[in-house]
Design a protein around this nucleic acid. Structure first.
Lengths: 122, 122
DNA sequence: GTAATTGCAAATAATTTGCTGGGTG
DNA sequence: CACCCAGCAAATTATTTGCAATTAC
């Protein structure tokens, strides 16, 4: 656990905007002015593999990161791109999928799309 | 509807492997040897905007395309990357999401991850 | 002390775009 | 004959990687 990795984890955990690698890099620079973007990418990948953060890479040309690792879903505003956490449960049965396709299901991801309240006014 | 666009749509529709842009390009070249990759990308985007095909861009560094446009879910094998269509229904209520977060939900996407039968044997 | 990790810069991968010319209505 | 679209190649975007120097344990 280098100081770079620690700062990167702190930045992701303390933000609720599901930041991009670039945003994380800018924030980390405030603490460690010499940190490089390559280090940010390397550590984000390590932290993701360690299960400390989530990488969100759906429906976009770039990844966003989430410091909340417990299972939850997301809402994405199609207009402004904002991502919101949804702590809701649905009855999504892995068994039903396994029966239908004879596969071994480990996890699932669910994402909702639409317009957020501030964008909906336009 | 140029002949290039028509061939690209045919290629996507006639395949069930959720092909990448590159694979589509290779197939299209068999019909139109001088077609360019830029044209493939341009037409895939046009066809997606027309609602003729789906672009699948989850959990990967590149997009895949699906000629089946009716709502359905997908299973992704974590080992071999194969994508399978799942024609199953779940009770996923947009109203529940809207109540929880006061947003306007238009659509959702659901994807399952695990190992397919052929990969599960390793 | 040694192995892992950094900063830097160059490389890569996927996709997009500018330009010019050809084909179509 | 006006214009949309193709082909080509260069540009862009996000991310990854090679390397020499530094740091962590």
């Amino acid at each position: 656990m280098t100081k770079q990795k620690k700062i990167i984890l702190e930045v992701v955990r303390s933000s609720n905007i599901h930041p991009t690698a670039d945003w994380i890099y800018e924030q980390a620079k405030k603490e460690l002015p010499d940190i490089s973007l390559g280090t940010v990418y390397r550590n984000l990948k390590l932290l993701r593999d360690m299960g400390e953060i989530l990488e969100l890479n759906w429906g976009s040309t770039f990844s966003r990161y989430d410091g909340i690792t417990e299972n939850h879903y997301h809402f994405v505003c199609k207009k402004c791109g904002k991502i919101m956490d949804l702590h809701l449960r649905f009855n999504i049965s892995h068994e039903a999928v396994e029966k239908a396709a004879s596969i071994n299901v480990e996890s699932h991801r669910l994402e909702f799309y639409g317009a957020c309240t501030s964008c909906d006014q336009d």
